[in-house]
Computed example of a mutant assay.
Amino acid sequence: MRILGVDPGLRRTGFGVVDAQGMRLQYVTSGTIVVPSDLPLAERLKVILDNIREVVETTSPTVSALEKVFVNANPSSTLLLGQARGAAMCALADSRLQVHEYTALQIKKSVVGNGHAAKEQVQRMVQHLLSLDGLPAADSADALACAICHAHVGPMVDRLAQRGQLPGTKSVRLRGGRLTR
């Protein structure tokens, strides 16, 4: 499984790609999409959309993981972050990738073992888990952590959902498969 993790932001959107075979992880690539702040909002969102599409085309992931938006004290900032996240999600969906969403708390808990870990702790654990020579940049580390979270948590959640064993889900029989709600 090749996982593309995305840490959306209107100024800086991090991306990270890892290969996962069971619990074995291998670093593929990572980086940060820096969006020019002097562009109109629609063009800034297009920069995110186009660059995520390009990352998908060049790395051929089989699945994606995206950090969920948190609500902060400034509603305007939350809305702008949501729009950046929407541009990234549209690029992933348009590329026919399944999109899995995780909160920052879930990601940190999965990678560091502490849902309230500092950014530096996440960076160090990502470096350790992926055997990187150096410390990844903060946005790249967050995106890689999102991919690592999916590698650890995603397969288990998928199996439970298919069996209808997740709280609040039930399986519905369809011709040729199952739909979990």
Rank of each mutant, 00 (worst) to 15 (best):
A161T: 06
S171L: 04
L129S: 05
V111Q: 08
E101D: 04
S171M: 10
C146G: 12
L130S: 09
Q162N: 02
L132R: 14
L160V: 03
L174I: 05
L135T: 15
Q123N: 13
C146K: 07
H100M: 07
R173C: 01
C90R: 10
L130T: 07
L97Q: 06
L105H: 11
G134E: 15
G115R: 09
C149E: 05
V99K: 07
R159M: 01
T103K: 06
T103Q: 01
H116C: 04
L130F: 13
R163A: 09
G115C: 03
T103D: 04
H128S: 15
I107G: 08
L174C: 03
Y102L: 01
V112F: 03
P136E: 13
D94A: 04
V99N: 01
A141K: 14
D142V: 12
C146R: 11
V112G: 09
Q106I: 00
L129M: 15
V126L: 12
H100N: 14
A161K: 13
M125W: 11
V157L: 14
K170N: 06
L166P: 02
Q162R: 10
V126E: 09
M125Q: 12
N114I: 02
D139M: 13
L166Q: 05
Q121L: 09
L130W: 13
L166A: 02
H128N: 11
A93H: 01
D139Y: 12
T103L: 06
D133L: 09
D94M: 12
G164P: 01
L174D: 01
C146A: 15
G168C: 03
L129D: 05
S171T: 12
A147C: 09
Q106W: 00
V99Q: 07
Q162Y: 00
A151H: 12
D142Y: 09
Q121T: 04
A143H: 08
S140Y: 06
L135S: 14
V112R: 08
R159N: 07
A137E: 15
V153I: 08
L132Q: 14
L130G: 11
E101F: 03
L97V: 03
A91E: 06
L97S: 11
V122C: 11
G164Q: 06
Q98R: 11
K109S: 09
E120P: 00
A91L: 08
L105I: 01
R96G: 03
R159H: 04
V122W: 10
L174F: 01
V111S: 09
L105T: 07
K109W: 00
R96C: 00
G164M: 06
G115T: 05
A117N: 06
S95N: 10
Q162G: 07
A147Q: 13
K109E: 07
S131G: 13
K170Y: 06
G164L: 08
C90W: 10
K170C: 00
D94Y: 10
A161M: 01
D142H: 13
Q123A: 15
